[in-house]
């Protein structure tokens, strides 16, 4: 099927079977590789992007079902124009191998959009689907609290 998607504010027309997951449209067709493949079964969160501001696992969204505007890590902020969340992530030196961090950040961004001052319990609830095999969780938590302060300030 041919479908036109809006990704990070730009339109892209792709011609692929409708059941191809958004993840693989982004990575192998559009060339946006910041969103990562980890498990393919929505168990790790590495592929998290936002559709109309809602955090979703892009490995579980077929192309034909994409219902809104897609934001990936590349659209969230760039090295020259970091988001407040990314600045906090850098201040706390969160990333180790870094492979899961695009997903972590897109999930955290959705959390902060909905809950500007999350408690530890709210962070647990929102972020528990995002696996990090390096175990960067303490710094993820610290960076989210820090970003909440920065965004409010």
């Amino acid at each position: 099927m041919s479908k036109t998607l809006t990704i990070n504010g730009k339109t892209h027309t792709v011609d692929l079977p409708g059941d191809v997951p958004l993840l693989w449209v982004l990575r192998d067709e559009v060339g946006l590789t910041g969103t990562k493949f980890g498990c393919g079964v929505a168990a790790c969160g590495a592929c998290t992007v936002q559709i109309d501001g809602e955090a979703v696992r892009s490995c579980q969204v077929p192309l034909e079902d994409v219902w809104g505007e897609v934001t990936t890590i590349e659209g969230h902020g760039t090295p020259d124009a970091l988001s407040a969340l990314q600045e906090a992530w850098i201040t706390h030196q969160v990333a180790q191998c870094g492979y899961c961090q695009s997903g972590q950040i897109m999930q955290a961004a959705a959390l902060l959009a909905q809950t500007p001052r999350p408690t530890d319990a709210q962070i647990d609830e929102a972020m528990s689907g995002n696996l990090c095999r390096c175990g960067t969780y303490p710094r993820i938590r610290a960076a989210i609290h820090d970003a909440a302060n920065r965004m409010e300030g």
Binding site: I73, T78, P79, I90, A95, G98, Q101
Partner: peptide, 16 residues
């Protein structure tokens, strides 16, 4: 970390 900005912005190149 010298890799921190790239790994925070989805611009680091992994194998995939």
């Amino acid at each position: 970390r010298t890799d921190i900005v790239a790994k925070t912005t989805g611009t680091a190149t992994y194998g995939v």
